[in-house]
Write a protein that binds this DNA or RNA. Structure first.
Length: 472
RNA sequence: GGUGGGUUGGCCGAGAGGCGAGGCAACGGACUGCAAAUCCGUGUACACGGGUUCAAAUCCCGUACCCACCUCCA
């Protein structure tokens, strides 16, 4: 039972063979913190969080590095529009991102380095590239430094493109480039348009890092010259990842063994970055469904499949999730706390080992939950214990354990539950009396009253049971 | 022009030569005072046209439409 994953570089699913037995080093391109995160942005984080959890579950010691790009053209442009320092914008958006990820139970990475904290590492790498003849300072005095694409014969190998077939961007300013496809490692400071705070000293004059170099430098620093998996969204394959690989390998490093790319969440058939308004910002979406339900929606689709976002589909997924949650609640009413040490079922393991087949894995959870519901009815609590623990364990691997403290303040909930229970108990007693007297009209009025307050009452063989309505 | 991906039932969404993943919705049944929850059952789905094969949603050829990337992008 080996973990297999789709490698973008070879375009095939292959066995995961780590560089070091029992360890997995992963680098994921995070966000440019220039605006508030929407559901599309966080999908990537969820996907790699699932990867990380699955590898950990499988016994690997995982090091996950997810960077934050905290200086770039867009951040500078937006902060100028908003008349505030670029670092203030980046800092605030970073905080919003952290909040959004926490709300859908994405574990913090091992470390989250930012570009601005690694300028010396980048300059060192640039120096190496110049010394090896793969980079040059622009001849136009702009202070830019470019990677020399023509000097690296395997340029284009990641995305299988021939340099000559690449369309050179029509609007690109060729400035001091030897070839229009050469890309910036270092961007000379533009005194007229950019704040002084956006410049760092360098041998080529004051300036700021180019986009791609940060990832090469930080991956090198935290994971070493060679590491196992590099991930990000599909759009990053080219140019970003192609360029990273070119830089790092031209500098003499083996770089990533596997490349993983997640597909988009689109809206109305378009990528979300173009979408209008802010209705899909994470906090907005969480007004409609709970964080765990949003996460379930994302995990229900394979990470390499496009998802066409819709609130209808999201809410439908939420209903499905509640079915699993409901099973665990019912089981817990019989068993007490469900053990966290359950074993995932075989189908689940096979699905996850096959390139993180989360859709099939979720289907496997539903199958086990159905078995569990049968055991619940049969009153076989010995068998139920194992089944419920299995469901909980599988959900936990996907970051979807309903009992995970990440979903809310358990302390307050427990206290509130006691209060509500006391209040509802009286009403339920009245309803029981009415039912005993066969006064069903009155019994139903009481039930409707309770329901109007947002509490569902269900009659079970062991008496009535109330629960908070999960409908929003 | 180059590169990659897609089109599956009412909806969402897997699969990748033979056995109808799973969920939601719908319908029928069991249970219930009625519900809810749960269980059981109910479906002639694979963009179109050819072809290969005993057998094609799956492989091949062609067509249509959609999407992404080609140096700002999760």
């Amino acid at each position: 039972m080996t973990f297999r994953l789709y490698d973008t570089a070879t375009r095939e699913v292959r066995d995961f063979v780590p560089l070091e037995e029992g360890k997995a080093g992963i680098y994921v391109c995070g966000l440019t913190v220039q605006s508030e995160p929407h559901v599309g942005h966080v999908r990537s984080a969820v996907n790699f969080d699932v990867l990380r959890r699955w590898l950990s579950h499988s016994g690997y010691a995982v090091t996950l590095i997810r960077n934050v790009t905290d200086i770039d053209d867009k951040i500078l442009a937006k902060s100028a529009e908003q008349s505030r320092p670029w670092f203030n914008l980046a800092y605030e958006m970073h905080a919003r991102l952290t909040e959004a990820l926490a709300s859908i139970n994405v574990l913090p990475p091992t470390y989250e380095p930012g570009a601005t904290g690694h300028v010396p590492e980048m300059l060192e790498l640039i120096e190496t590239l110049i010394a090896r003849g793969h980079a040059y300072a622009a001849e136009d005095g702009s202070g830019d430094v470019y990677f020399d694409v023509r000097s690296w014969p395997s340029y284009g190998e990641l995305t299988r493109q021939a340099v000559d077939d690449m369309e050179s961007a029509g609007d690109a300013d060729p400035r001091g480039k030897r070839d229009p496809r050469d890309f910036a490692l270092w961007k000379g400071h533009k005194k007229e348009t950019e704040p002084e705070s956006a410049a760092w000293p360098s041998p080529y004059g004051p300036g700021r890092p180019g986009w791609h170099i940060e990832c090469s430098a930080m991956a090198r620093k935290y994971l070493g010259p060679g590491f196992d998996i590099h991930g990000g969204g599909v759009d990053l394959r080219f140019p970003h990842h192609e360029n990273e690989q070119a830089q790092s390998r031209a500098a003499g490093q083996p770089f990533a063994s596997y490349w993983m790319h997640n597909a988009w969440i689109t809206t109305a058939g378009e990528k979300m970055s173009k979408s209008l308004g802010n209705s899909l910002l994470v906090p907005k979406v969480l007004e409609r469904v709970r964080g765990v339900e949003l996460r379930f929606y994302m995990v229900s689709a394979h990470y390499r499949s496009h998802v066409e976002f819709s609130f209808e589909a999201l809410e439908e997924a939420a209903v499905g999730y509640r079915r699993l949650e409901n099973f665990l609640e019912r089981a817990s009413a019989v068993l007490g706390e469900i053990p966290t040490t359950g074993m995932p079922c075989a189908d689940f393991v096979v699905a996850m080992d096959d390139d993180l087949g989360t859709p099939a894995a979720v289907a496997a959870i539903f199958d086990v939950a159905r078995e569990g519901n049968k055991l619940l009815e049969a009153g076989d609590s010995a068998a139920l214990r194992g089944t419920a623990a299995s469901v909980r364990a599988m959900l936990a691997v996907l970051g979807l354990d309903p009992a995970d403290p990440a979903w809310g303040s358990a302390g307050d909930d427990a206290a509130l539950t006691g209060v509500v229970d006391a209040l509802v108990a009286g009403l339920l007693e009245q309803r029981a009396e009415a039912r005993a007297a066969k006064d069903y009209a009155r019994a139903d009025v009481i039930r409707d009253q309770i329901k109007a307050a947002g509490i569902e009452v269900e009659d079970t063989p062991t008496g009535p049971k109330w629960s908070l309505s999960k409908e929003h």
